[in-house]
């Protein structure tokens, strides 16, 4: 019963990852693709959580925290690159 519900939710998660990959390939502008990558990270977090319930293991919780942090930093860096043209700015004398 419980494994059946978990497999159903993994199936829903797979469909949503397919939809996000469609937006990642087709997306007309660069912010669309960044947004799709961010959503992919969030869905991966949910997938790792479901697998840790499925396997009854507590070893994957660091991975959840790590994917969250890395996805956030990558999104911020890409958005700053689109907005300003550089990721890390240098102080110039004006």
């Amino acid at each position: 019963m419980i494994n059946f519900i978990l497999i159903c939710s993994l199936l829903f998660l797979t469909f949503s990852i397919l939809a996000i990959s469609y937006r990642l390939v087709v997306g007309p502008s660069a912010p669309d693709r960044i947004q799709a990558l961010d959503a992919l990270g969030v869905n991966l977090i949910a997938g790792v959580a479901i697998f840790s319930v499925f396997l009854r293991s507590v070893a994957f919780f660091e991975i959840i925290l790590l994917i969250g942090i890395l996805s956030f930093i990558g999104t911020i860096a890409l958005a700053k690159f689109i907005e300003r043209g550089v990721v890390i700015e240098h102080k110039r004398s004006e």
């Binding site: 019963m1 419980i2 519900i5 978990l6 159903c8 939710s9 993994l10 829903f12 998660l13 469909f15 949503s16 990852i17 939809a19 996000i20 469609y22 937006r23 502008s29 912010p31 669309d32 947004q35 799709a36 959503a39 969030v42 869905n43 949910a46 959580a49 479901i50 319930v53």
Partner: peptide, 30 residues
């Protein structure tokens, strides 16, 4: 059963937001 049903509701929400990602017209609504 309660936490597993919570997980199922959460994945349904993820799925609905991914449908919104396909169907909505521009980057802001998406």
């Amino acid at each position: 059963l309660l936490p597993v049903v919570l997980i199922f509701i959460g994945t349904i929400f993820c799925f609905l937001s991914a449908i919104g990602l396909i169907r909505l017209p521009d980057v802001y609504t998406r």
